[in-house]
């Protein structure tokens, strides 16, 4: 079993998540793609932790999970606010900062 198996899996999931962030226009779906990205990073952290026989990777993965939970809460609250003000969560229509 190679270390690379996990690293390549994480890289592929990361790229799929990046595609999702770029290609989706619904804000909730963009948040879901960000979750895929965060999870691929967690696979890397835990794999390197197991490889070096330390628990630091696992501890960092736990912190990332906690931060991701906070991020989803705030993100969905912002999406709800955008929906309430503009009746749409299409990211192309949230262009108030355009000059």
């Amino acid at each position: 079993m190679w270390l690379n198996q996990y690293l390549v899996l994480a890289a592929i999931l990361f790229s799929i998540g990046v595609y999702g962030v770029l290609a989706r226009r619904n804000a909730v779906l963009v948040l879901m793609s960000i979750e895929i990205i965060l999870n691929s990073v967690n696979i890397n952290l835990v794999a390197f932790g197991a490889f070096n026989d330390t628990v630091t990777g696992e501890v960092f993965a736990l912190f990332v999970i906690a931060i991701a939970a906070a991020e989803v809460g705030i993100g969905l609250a912002i999406v709800l606010l955008i929906y309430r003000n503009r009746r749409s969560i299409d990211l192309n229509e949230a262009d108030l900062m355009r000059g």
């Binding site: 079993m1 190679w2 270390l3 690379n4 390549v8 197991a50």
Partner: peptide, 12 residues
């Protein structure tokens, strides 16, 4: 990744 970690084995 394939170039850097070519075939490093996991501890069994």
């Amino acid at each position: 990744l394939l170039r850097t970690f070519e075939d490093i084995e996991f501890p069994t």
